[in-house]
Computed example of a mutant assay.
Amino acid sequence: MNADIDGPVWVPTLPPSFEQLLAPNLQPIPLLPAIALLLATAYTIGAIRLWMQGRRWSVIRTICFLIGCTLLAVVTGAGIEGYGYELFSVFMFQQLTLMMVVPPLLILGSPGTLLLRATPHGGLGRTTLRVALGALRSPAARLAVHPATVIPLAALSYLGLYLTGAADVLLRTWIGHVGLEIAFLCIGILVATPLISADPLPRRTSFVFRVVDTFAEMQIHAILGLVLMLTHTPIIPFFATIPESWNIDPAIDQSAAGILAWTYGELPLLIILIVTLSRWERRDTRQATTMQALNDAELDEYNEYLRRLSPDTTQPTPTHSDGASSASAPPEARPHSKAQHE
């Protein structure tokens, strides 16, 4: 058992089970559950404020955000948190949830848009809006959501953390453990925001880079999963001291962590990829329809202009039996059909 963890930590003694993992065993300092509760409360107040003013706000967005807050509280506040100090597979589940599941749910709630709509425009609210808009338009914000930033961050949070020995050092202290969880959540938000956010952003990532970003992250998960599954000795010494009474082999537990990285971690990315490709196709279809409508309107205007150039606008242009225009009208003054124009 990892009894040498530095800091206020509750460590379980019973073997892991579904009931024990979900039991409400809060840590002595439940920092992340408190953050989840604060976020859910602030969001709910904002949504209720809009509804009381008779302004529309999506119930679906609200549900998504509150589910994300609930998952954040459970994965860091229930027994899962304690078992994350003992089992690599549980800690990997926590990391993947904090990076791949919670952030998309929070982002789908459009908290930035809610902040702009629900915050009062006077007093402290005015200051809050100025700070929020200033941060949104800052060069740091543009850099934070750039693919050149988010892809290396995703690689460091997986490969860099576990293959360099950094995890073994950080996980031995309460500050390091909780600091990693906060970092996972923040990196997950930075990675997912350019891909799915409908909020105002300092820059919009093209669909090409969104697809490249998603594929790159999928490869990172696959590489980490293979390394963990194919390595038969513990990569993280911190997770090599599982209580003997639990009858869990550290190598098997590490392999389970690799399976989670390759399956549970890939599924959200696959969904994001499908949604991204669907949005890309709809965007191109709308643009093509708009351009066709503009071309048709320009052609109609051009044909009308040619009709006004005709010597006699009161009489219809004579046509031959085959529908062709009479030769009396000059070729340059004959109306063009859309098929000819194209």
Rank of each mutant, 00 (worst) to 15 (best):
Y85V: 01
A324T: 15
M218S: 10
I223C: 02
T317E: 15
L133D: 08
L96T: 09
E301Q: 09
F184Y: 07
E304H: 08
P120Q: 00
I252W: 01
M218Q: 12
I259D: 06
Y85P: 01
E266Q: 01
I5Q: 03
P103E: 01
H232G: 07
P24S: 14
A78Q: 01
R137S: 12
L14P: 00
R55Q: 15
E298K: 03
G112N: 04
M100L: 12
D312F: 15
R142G: 14
G160V: 08
M218I: 05
G258V: 14
A198I: 02
H336C: 03
G84S: 09
G165Q: 06
P237D: 13
A78V: 00
V227R: 06
S321M: 10
A144T: 03
L269V: 05
V59A: 11
S245D: 09
G179V: 04
S138I: 06
A192Y: 12
V208W: 07
G258Y: 06
L71D: 13
R334T: 06
R210H: 00
L66D: 13
A73I: 05
M229T: 11
S157C: 04
R307K: 11
I107Y: 10
P331N: 10
E81A: 14
P243W: 14
D284P: 00
L32H: 06
L153D: 06
I80G: 07
I271P: 15
S310N: 14
L299W: 07
L161V: 08
